[in-house]
């Protein structure tokens, strides 16, 4: 991938609030044997909001790369960091974000992994098929 900042934002918002949201609602409804809880919805929104900031940082890092690209491997490292960041925020810094009172690290990891993998697979396949200009516009679909 060779994303632009606007492309990163647009893709993140679209995929998180469609594919990510469907999976999150399944978690909220307790479809995976977990208890029904709205916390997953709130967590998803935090991932999106913090992510908009992270995207800005990633673009700065990208400028140091000659090809100004962002390989799939870096996407995974970034995703790992974003998940870890929320865990650190809660477990180490002990910051309780509104709506996340029933935090459970184990459940968060499962939820986050599902959401992330679904988004990654969609971005690598379906996005290209639905939006033929997406790959030429650095991830902008609008």
């Amino acid at each position: 991938m060779t994303p632009t900042l606007l492309g990163r934002w647009q893709t993140r918002l679209l995929l998180m609030e469609t594919v990510g949201l469907v999976i999150t609602l399944l978690f909220c409804g307790g479809f995976f044997g977990n208890e029904e809880n709205a916390i997953f919805f709130w967590l998803l929104q935090y991932i999106v909001v913090f992510g908009l900031g992270w995207d800005y940082l990633y673009i700065q890092i990208q400028n140091f790369r000659w090809d100004q690209d962002w390989p799939a491997a870096l996407q995974w490292l970034a995703a790992l960091w974003e998940g870890l960041f929320l865990i650190l925020l809660r477990e180490v810094a002990a910051i309780e974000l509104p709506g996340t009172e029933d935090w459970d690290s184990g459940l968060f990891i499962v939820h986050y992994s599902f959401v992330w993998i679904a988004i990654f697979i969609t971005s690598q396949s379906l996005m290209r098929l639905i939006f033929p200009r997406w790959r030429f516009r650095g991830g902008q679909w609008l």
Binding site: D67, Q68, D69
Partner: peptide, 17 residues
């Protein structure tokens, strides 16, 4: 060295823009 004849972002990234 460069993977292709232009930096990759020339095709559809920041450099194209």
């Amino acid at each position: 060295f460069q993977p292709f004849n232009w930096p990759k972002a020339c095709w559809g990234g920041t450099l194209r823009e």
